[in-house]
Amino acid sequence: MKTRSAYLRSPWQCELREVDLPDDVPDGYALIRVEACGICGTDLSNAESQLEDWQPFGHEIAGVIEKLGTHAGGLKIGDKVVLESASYCGKCELCRSGRVDLCNKAPHFWNAGPSLGFSDYLLAPVCGIVPYEGMTPETACLAEPAGVAYDMVKTAEIEHGNRVCVIGPGPIGLMAIPIALRSGADQVVCIGRPGNRARLEAAAKLGAETLAADRPWTEYEELRGRFDRVLLTAPVQTIPEAIPLLAYGGILSYIGIGTGSGMIRFDANDFHYRKLQLRASFASPALYYPIVLKMLKSGAIPADTIISHRLPLNEIGRAMKLCQEDKGETVKVVVTP
């Protein structure tokens, strides 16, 4: 069968192609009809400079099962589902020791066929398929980035009464706000740039105090040493600037990745004597889908506050350009067939 599929190459080249999928679904796989897929910051990074060759893209996926191979794992044709971007195998030594968070050995959709999330159809292994109900596909496709936000908050070990700073009001930082508040944070402050008007407004709606920082954070004396936890979604090079915001014994959890080498420098003596901790959050395998799906369904994570734009698949190029050129007014773009 044929399907439309979006392909990406840097710098900022995007095109729709017609590609072939097998008529017979392989054992342990499902054919998914895509209903919604969100544009991720990773897609934008790849468009900027990471992809020398054309590749299909899109991994924040909600859809419907159209066909099933054998060994379907209890799934049914017609089930509404979201797809884990990576899964654990459940069989290796790490999994059997209870560290499923360290295993990525299960099959995944990244190399299952010539199409990914920005398409009409794709193939996905049943081990990474999670059914959902009671919400729109546009809301459900936020499960993948919401799981990333949940992992970052969990990594920070937020406790009741903590003062929390979220740096970077992108979709993941924004979704971390209600998760942090429900984890016991007494106060959440969200820092963004002055041009991030729509994103900072969304942060305020989600319960955070906001700051449009027009100078380095360390120049705001009232922020130095104020926060028990810092959640950083900005590039890794900003970590040294974020460390002084931590209170004694504070924890900085980050998900940002660096451009170039990703090398940073900071005062290790100050870090040591103030008993600080720096923790990397990397939500792969993609855990916590059942938890964040409940939060999306209940409105604890309000999708309408996160999603700012909805565009059809035939406008995928325009959708990517919107993210590139209008970051001040664009929060989250979701693409639908």
Results as ranks from 00 to 15, higher is better:
309 H>E: 11
144 E>S: 04
13 Q>R: 12
8 L>S: 04
255 I>D: 05
228 D>W: 01
293 L>F: 12
187 Q>S: 13
253 S>L: 03
87 S>C: 15
202 A>I: 07
114 P>T: 09
266 F>Q: 06
8 L>I: 13
177 I>M: 05
160 H>S: 15
254 Y>M: 07
254 Y>Q: 06
159 E>R: 15
244 P>A: 12
160 H>Y: 10
121 Y>G: 02
47 A>H: 04
319 A>M: 11
198 A>I: 08
253 S>N: 05
93 E>S: 12
279 R>L: 14
116 L>Y: 01
200 L>H: 04
308 S>A: 04
240 P>F: 08
36 A>N: 04
138 E>N: 10
125 P>T: 09
46 N>C: 14
74 G>F: 04
287 L>C: 01
299 G>W: 05
128 G>L: 03
6 A>C: 12
203 A>S: 11
335 V>K: 01
108 H>E: 15
118 F>I: 08
229 R>D: 03
6 A>I: 11
320 M>W: 06
169 P>C: 09
80 K>H: 15
40 C>V: 12
145 P>L: 06
294 K>Y: 00
244 P>R: 02
94 L>A: 13
57 F>D: 03
28 G>S: 11
52 E>C: 05
209 E>Q: 15
270 D>P: 00
165 C>R: 00
120 D>V: 02
164 V>F: 04
214 D>P: 01
259 T>N: 09
288 Y>D: 12
